[in-house]
Design a binder for these strands. Structure first.
Lengths: 338, 338
DNA sequence: ATGAAAGCGCTAACAC
DNA sequence: GTGTTAGCGCTTTCAT
C-alpha cells in the first residue's frame, strides 16, 4: 500500500544501496538520479522514518515535557524552540503533563520508549527522578525555568530573583511602602526565587516584610483573584501589589475589578509576563517580561550542541544559562511622591 | 548501552517470544513473570517503540497540525484531545505551522514519514492538497474547524453561522441598529461563516448590512485593534460592534481603550471565544464561547474509531460533527431600549 | 557509483 | 507456555 525503497529499486532496476545513497545525499549518476526521482513521484514514496530510526538509532526527534500546554509562557518557548530545531532537521513531540508528577513520569518514559534523541523539560517533579532513564542512557537533558538539585544537565533559567527585586524597586521608587505580594506555590522554584526577590528588595529599602502582605496562590487565574481579594480585604493600608506570574496577573485584575478597586488611584499593580493582556488592560499594566523567545532559542541550541557532541564521558561541562527580564511600562503604578 | 529484549532473554535464560509475550500482556508462567520483571528492573529495560512500530506498522501516534500553538483555541482543543488519546494508549505529535501553507505541507509530510496512524488538522491550506499522502495511504484524517471542499474525511466543526447570528441578535434585542463587524480574513472558512451570520441576522431584522460597518482583520491582536479604530473613526453613529475571533477581541479592547471610548456607554461590544480575558475586562465582556473541550473529545473519539475500524473500502460514511456555541453574559452591551 | 547481504529490536507464525 | 525463525524498511559495510 505504501511504497518502500524496495519498490523503487524494482521500479528503477537499481539496487537498494543506490536508492539509499540518493536519499541520504550521496553521489548518484545523473541518469539514475532522474530514474529514482521519477519512481519516487510515481509511487508516492516517502521515507519510513521508523525504519530509519531503528537502523541508525537516531530519531531526529526531541521530546518536550511541560506542565501545561495552555500556559502562554510554555507555548511561546516551544514555538521559538521548534523553529530552531526544525531548521536543523529535528522534530519535537510535546507532552503536556497537567502539572501532575505521575503524568510527567509517564510522559518522560513514553518519550524514552519512542527513543527521542534528547529531552527538554520544564519540571514539575522537583527531585528529577523522572529523568533517570535519559540520564542512564546518557541522552541529553535540558531543563527549563526550574532548577533541580541532584541532576546533572544543562539549564536555561530566568533570573527571577532580580526580576522580582526590580519590580519591587520600581514600586519603592514611586514612594510605595506597604507592598503586597501575590506569590506562587511555596514548593515551586520560580515562586521561591520571586518571593526572595520581593523580600530582599524591601529589606534593602529598610522595609520589614510582613506576612500579612503575602499570599501564596497556585499560579492560576482563579488563585490570583482569590489572593488579591484576601490581600485587599486584610490590608487597608496596602498601596501596591506585585503579582508573580502570568495567570495570576490576569486573576488579580479580575479580582480588582470585581472589588471595584481603582488602578492606580487606590492600588498600584505590577504584573508578570503577560504582555498582551497588560496592553489590553485599562489602565495599561506595568509588567515584568520574560525573554521567552530567547529561552526557546537557547534551549534548542543547547540540546543540539549536546547531541552533536561525541556525547563523551562525564567530561561534559554542563551549562546554566540565566537570562534577564525586563519591565514593560504601563500606567498601573501611582507615583506617591508627587 | 540501552537494554533490548535480547538482553533480558539472556539474563533470564528465556526465549525472545516469552519476553515479547509478557510485554504484550500474554500468558507467562508466574515463575518466569517474576524473573522477567526482575530483569527489566535490573537492566532498566524500556520497550523500543521504534522497532515495535516497524514490525507492527502501527506507531500508536497521532499527528496534529495546527496553525499556531499560541492560539488558546488550539491548545484547549489539543489538551482535551490528548487526554482521550492518552487514555487509549495513543500519543500525539503536535506541529505548529505558523499559519503557513508551505510549513503545513512540510508538517504533514513529516508526520507521514514518521508513520503516524492518523492525522488531525486545522487546515490553513483550503484546497486540502497537503493531505494527499494520508489520503492515498488510506490513513484516517480528521479536520477541525474549517471545511475543505474536495477532501473526503471526518470533520468536527463549530456552527459559526448560528454563533454570529445569535451574537448579532443579542445586540438587536438590545435596540442596536448600527452594528459594526470586525471580521476575519476573507479566505478563511470560519470568517466567512461568521460574516454570513452577521449579515443574515441583520437582514432578518430588516436592517441592510453596510460595507462601511465591516472591517476585515487578520485574526491577530494588532489586526483587531486596527480594525476597531477604523470602524470607530468612520462611523460616528455605530452603537455596537461584534468582534469575530479570540485574538481580535483582545485587540478591539486595546483599540477601544486607546481611543478612550467607553464600554458600553459609547460602544457596546460582543466578543468571541476569549472567556478568560472577557472576565478580566472592565467591564466584563459579553462573549460567544466555543465548546473547545467537546471539540477535542469528539476529534479524538472520531479518529480512534476510524483507526479501530477495518479501515475497509470507500464504504466509510464520513461524519461531519457540528457543535453549537454559547454566549457568556457580561456587561459590555448597553440596552438602548431602556 | 553500484549491488549483495547483514542486522537494528521487535512481533508473529509455527512447532513443540 | 515457550523457543526458533523470518522479516518489517531501512542503512551500512564490503565487494566489485
Amino acid at each position: 500500500m505504501v511504497a518502500t525503497i524496495k519498490d523503487i529499486a524494482k521500479y528503477t532496476g537499481l539496487g537498494l544501496a543506490t536508492i539509499s545513497s540518493y536519499l541520504n545525499g550521496g553521489n548518484v549518476r545523473e541518469e539514475n538520479r532522474k530514474k529514482i526521482e521519477a519512481a519516487i513521484k510515481e509511487l508516492n514514496f516517502e521515507v519510513n522514518e521508523v525504519a530509519r530510526g531503528l537502523k541508525t538509532n537516531k530519531t531526529k526527534t526531541i521530546g518536550v515535557v511541560i506542565p501545561e500546554l495552555n500556559i502562554n509562557f510554555c507555548t511561546e518557548i516551544i514555538t521559538a524552540m521548534e523553529d530552531v530545531l526544525r531548521n536543523h532537521g529535528y522534530a519535537t513531540i510535546v507532552c503536556d503533563c497537567r502539572t501532575n508528577k505521575e503524568l510527567e513520569k509517564n510522559a518522560v518514559d513514553f518519550l524514552f520508549r519512542k527513543r527521542v534523541d534528547g529531552i527538554i523539560n520544564m519540571p514539575v517533579n522537583s527531585d528529577g527522578s523522572h529523568l533517570s532513564c535519559f540520564h542512564k542512557a546518557k541522552k541529553p537533558i535540558v531543563l527549563i525555568d526550574r532548577k533541580i538539585n541532584g541532576i546533572e544537565c544543562d539549564y536555561v533559567l530566568v533570573d527571577n530573583l532580580t526580576a522580582a527585586k526590580n519590580a519591587i524597586q520600581r514600586l519603592i521608587d514611586n514612594g510605595h511602602k506597604r507592598i503586597g505580594m501575590v506569590g506562587g506555590p511555596e514548593d515551586v522554584f520560580t515562586a521561591q526565587e520571586r518571593m526572595l526577590g520581593y523580600k530582599l528588595a524591601l529589606m534593602e529599602a529598610g522595609i520589614v516584610p510582613e506576612d500579612r502582605l503575602i499570599e501564596h496562590g497556585d499560579y492560576t487565574i482563579n488563585g490570583g483573584a482569590r489572593c488579591l481579594e484576601k490581600l485587599v480585604k486584610n490590608n487597608r493600608d496596602m498601596t501596591a501589589v506585585f503579582v508573580a506570574n502570568h495567570e495570576m496577573t490576569m486573576g488579580a485584575v479580575i479580582g480588582i475589578n470585581e472589588l471595584g478597586v481603582k488602578i492606580p488611584e487606590e492600588l498600584s499593580v505590577i504584573g508578570f509576563d503577560n504582555t498582551e493582556f497588560a496592553r489590553a488592560c485599562k489602565p495599561k499594566l506595568t509588567i515584568v517580561t520574560q525573554p521567552k523567545e530567547e529561552i526557546g532559542k537557547n534551549v534548542a541550541e543547547l540540546i543540539l550542541k549536546r547531541i552533536a557532541e561525541n556525547k563523551s564521558e562525564q567530561e561534559i561541562e554542563y551549562k546554566i544559562i540565566k537570562l534577564q527580564t525586563d519591565i514593560m511600562e504601563g500606567n498601573s503604578i501611582r507615583n506617591l511622591k508627587k
